[in-house]
């Protein structure tokens, strides 16, 4: 750590220069003022490739202060490459405290999950977004999608869901499931499983979305209505799992399938590693294995 101390002196706090941070903060403020609306911003080159969370990192870099406590998750896990790298990045360029505990973090940068533990007022959830435009699937023209948002022409979104039912018998979209924010803008919640959609609704935390390659920022302010689109005869439903987490016995949480061997052995475990570990520490155990057994991923 100390070996890096001189090197980071070359960087401004949190890597981005202050002008850039201001620009991004302005975009964030505008995004909060117009919930669900995609605000264009001048995305910077970051020391990581597009697709690795450059949007989320820029948002985090613009809002983080020395007193913040940062948690980074990738698919619910604190210890996958992406999460580890981004956490290390901010330790290095901002020297902030980091944690894996949801409850202790003031900023949580996430790729594709919302923690199981309900977020509290004052917390900020920063999503990494690959494709911010929910209408892109059917309308390739940016000029047209912008107009559709402006005029609230969202029939196309239901065309996509209709197509799902027509092809699969049910709405087969399981992640990046479109939502309507505060009854106005239709928004892509980033590729989180639709399981997490209800958590966005009336959340006490501020939710910020950053898309680096696409140069868009959008937001859901605390206590905002977030409704998943659906049909009357095919209402929105979250995934259910017919067994609890194999490790912690947690039910009503999002589980990942883990293949154990070449013989088809598998188990389902919490995708949220912090949640799982905490439960195991509290003495809960699942059908397979004892607390602390399976090192997931």
């Amino acid at each position: 750590m100390n070996a890096h101390a001189e090197n980071i002196a070359q960087y401004n706090f949190a890597y981005l220069d202050e002008q850039t941070k201001r620009m991004i903060r302005r975009a964030i403020l505008k995004a909060i003022a117009i919930p669900g609306y995609q605000v264009p911003f001048a995305s910077r080159e970051m020391p990581m490739p597009y697709g690795w969370g450059t949007g989320g990192v820029q948002v985090t870099a613009s809002i983080i202060g020395p007193d913040d406590v940062l948690k980074v998750i990738d698919q619910g896990s604190d210890d996958t490459t992406n999460a580890v790298s981004i956490r290390a990045f901010f330790q290095k360029v901002a020297e902030v405290a980091v944690t894996t505990e949801t409850g202790k973090a003031s900023i949580i940068q996430t790729r594709h999950r919302i923690p199981e533990e309900p977020l509290k007022a004052g917390q900020v959830l920063v999503y990494q977004v690959p494709i911010p435009e929910p209408l892109r699937f059917l309308e390739p023209r940016e000029t047209e999608t912008r107009k559709m948002h402006a005029l609230e022409e969202y029939g196309l979104m239901h065309v996509k869901l209709y197509e799902d039912i027509a092809q699969h018998g049910h709405i087969a979209t399981t992640y990046a499931y479109p939502v309507k924010v505060e009854g106005r803008y239709v928004m892509d919640p980033s590729p989180t499983p639709k399981f997490d959609n209800p958590k966005m609704h009336m959340s006490a935390a501020l939710q910020l979305f950053g898309a680096g390659r696409e140069k868009r920022i959008y937001a859901i302010p605390p206590y905002t209505r977030v409704e998943s689109l659906d049909f009357e005869d095919h209402p929105f439903e979250v995934q259910t799992f017919d067994q609890p987490c194999a490790l912690c016995g947690g039910a009503g949480v999002y589980l990942d399938e883990v293949v154990l061997d070449d013989a088809g052995g598998r188990m389902f475990v919490c995708s949220d590693t912090d949640y799982c570990e905490k439960r195991q520490a509290e003495g809960h155990a699942g059908p397979t294995g004892s607390p602390g057994e399976g090192e997931v991923q």
Binding site: L138, G155, V159, Y162, Q167, D230, F231, E232, D233
Partner: peptide
């Protein structure tokens, strides 16, 4: 790239029809 049914149903959905069975 979407089905014939969705092509015909698009205008209905744009007008706020939200019943898949009826649209189809």
């Amino acid at each position: 790239t979407v089905s014939a049914g969705a092509n015909v149903g698009e205008r209905l959905m744009a007008l706020g029809d939200r019943h898949y069975g009826q649209i189809r």
